[in-house]
Design a protein around this nucleic acid. Structure first.
Ligand SMILES: [Mn+2]
Ligand SMILES: [Mn+2]
Ligand SMILES: [Zn+2]
Ligand SMILES: [Zn+2]
Lengths: 143, 143
DNA sequence: TTACAAACGCAAATGATTCTTATTTAGGTT
DNA sequence: AACCTAAATAAGAATCATTTGCGTTTGTAA
């Protein structure tokens, strides 16, 4: 997949811009992220990473992924109850979670802007920083 | 407040219907809920309850509140990261959370139905059981 | 090189919630 | 009034994801 390689290049480039050091641990995490499907957990990344880098610490993965969120390389979705998921899809979108298999599906919602308008008018002077629609149910597979 | 008393009566009545035993612990929890503002945490209820019932166990509060959700006396909102909030407002609505003071504000969104339609068409045969809009930002007070 | 902040590994701490187990009790039934 | 049993409880251990403290290592840039 040349696509993955591009992804990896992008991560490396961006992190360089942000002044992050290119440590081997970070490289492994970057590579795994660029090869992974979206919505991975820290634990998933950690388990794959330790195969090629056995002395890697989970804390390092936690620290790095959260840092990537801060620097805008990733998004994190805090799903109710379950562990944090990290999203490489930076486009504005929302999520459906299957309560059986826990699979996360992207949803693109144009009409959500009307709900944002409604919210604004009801919340008065409050400042809205984020808006996330959480859909939950049973996916096609699990039905 | 006769309103609180009505609330309490309602809780007692409903729980009787559902076959829940009227233990003193449950009564204290009911009363506190009927006197509290919306969106309380288990810990808030526990701390207030132990004043009049010092031997109360936190697990009992957890058990009771979650059971009340199951029997439809309460709703719980799983806010990202923070601890679970319990809502006595059973009307369909959504929530704004201030990231400074953690205050939770109700929002009523008519237009959200259009997002539900969009979601349905994108998710195909999946069955959607719940839809929650999480708004986050800074409240008027904190600004 | 030297220097210093950034990054790490490890292990302990945290915090919310759940589970376990022995004991008590509410509320219906003789 | 004594009795029965499923439901409920207290207390504390366990869980699980995540965070933090700290002593050590390592990039990077002068
Ligand atoms: Mn996504
Ligand atoms: Mn509410
Ligand atoms: Zn599923
Ligand atoms: Zn606030």
């Amino acid at each position: 997949m040349t696509e993955n390689k591009d992804n990896l290049e992008k991560l490396i480039g961006l992190s360089k811009e942000k002044g992050l050091k290119l440590t081997p641990q970070r490289m492994v995490i970057f590579r795994i992220l660029s090869e992974s499907k979206q919505h991975v957990t820290v634990d998933q990344v950690y388990k794959r990473a330790r195969v090629e880098y056995p002395m890697l610490s989970p804390a390092t993965v936690y620290r790095n992924m959260e840092q990537m969120v801060e620097t805008g390389l990733l998004t994190h979705l805090e799903l109710s109850g379950a562990s944090m998921r990290y999203d490489t899809n930076l486009d504005e979108h929302h999520h459906f979670v299957c309560s059986k298999c826990r699979m996360v599906t992207d949803v693109y919602l144009d009409n959500i802007k009307y709900s944002l308008d409604e919210s604004r008018s009801q919340l008065g002077k409050a400042q809205i920083n984020s808006l996330d629609l959480h859909l939950q149910g049973t996916c096609g597979e699990c039905l």
